[in-house]
Simulated scan of single mutants.
Amino acid sequence: MNCGIRKWRIEDAADLAAALNNTKIMDNLRDGLPYPYTAADAEGYITAMLSAEKDSVYAFAITVDDKAVGSIGVFRKENIHRRTAEIGYYVAEPYWGKGVGTAALKETCRYVFKHTDILRIFAEPFAYNQASCRILEKAGFTCEGTLRSNAVKNGKVQDMKMYSLIK
């Protein structure tokens, strides 16, 4: 199994839609994504990522044998935080527990640190999402603490964790 990251292609839309039509994934992402998630939704997302500001958004397909099986993106912050960026990701359920997420996270962070002036990458997974927390830890991120009552997801107030990786 050859896993990695690459730029998005419009042809990835069907695979992206298939991955996101899963409530186990949607329940761990921020709100705003439509459900069900269609190929047209995926095409819109891919188009937006391909045309995004090149010094602010670094978005990639997570791949296994060149098939898109997830998404990972790094989003630069502004003002005094301009050298800090937030990372977000998901992997299609059939690829959970196979090291795909960890490999993509490591490769993405290496790319961002090598090709930009970003000094700090952070992630804020829901505290209950132990699998995502474990991926971050295996990729070298440090847990800086718990953000108590930090979000409302599916009508419930949730704690989140703060993880970071420093260049």
Rank of each mutant, 00 (worst) to 15 (best):
M1N: 07
N2T: 13
N2H: 05
C3P: 03
R6Q: 07
K7S: 14
W8N: 08
I10Y: 05
A13D: 01
A13R: 01
A13W: 02
A14F: 02
L16F: 02
T23D: 08
K24M: 05
I25K: 10
I25N: 09
L29K: 01
L29I: 13
R30Q: 12
P34W: 12
P34S: 12
Y35C: 02
P36I: 07
P36L: 04
Y37A: 00
Y37I: 01
Y37D: 01
A39D: 14
A40R: 04
D41L: 04
D41W: 02
A42Q: 00
A42W: 02
G44M: 10
G44C: 12
I46T: 12
A48V: 01
A48P: 00
M49Y: 04
S51E: 15
A52F: 07
D55Y: 07
D55C: 06
S56V: 10
Y58L: 07
F60W: 11
A61W: 03
I62V: 15
I62R: 04
D66I: 04
D66F: 06
K67H: 10
A68Q: 09
V69S: 10
S71R: 05
V74G: 07
R76Y: 05
R76H: 09
I80P: 04
H81I: 09
H81C: 13
R82Q: 14
T84I: 04
T84H: 09
A85K: 01
E86D: 14
K98R: 13
V100Y: 02
G101M: 10
T102L: 03
A103T: 11
A104C: 12
L105I: 03
K106A: 01
E107L: 13
T108Y: 10
T108R: 01
Y111Q: 04
V112H: 11
V112Q: 05
F113P: 03
F113R: 03
K114M: 09
K114N: 11
K114P: 00
K114G: 04
K114W: 03
H115Q: 11
T116C: 09
D117G: 12
L119F: 06
L119E: 15
E124P: 00
Y128I: 05
N129G: 03
N129D: 12
Q130G: 04
A131N: 11
S132L: 08
C133D: 12
C133Y: 09
R134I: 07
I135C: 12
I135D: 10
L136I: 07
E137W: 05
A139E: 03
G140Y: 09
C143K: 14
G145M: 10
A151H: 08
V152M: 08
N154W: 05
G155E: 12
K156D: 04
K156F: 10
K156G: 00
V157K: 13
Q158H: 10
M160H: 08
M162G: 06
Y163T: 09
Y163Q: 14
S164P: 06
L165C: 13
I166K: 06
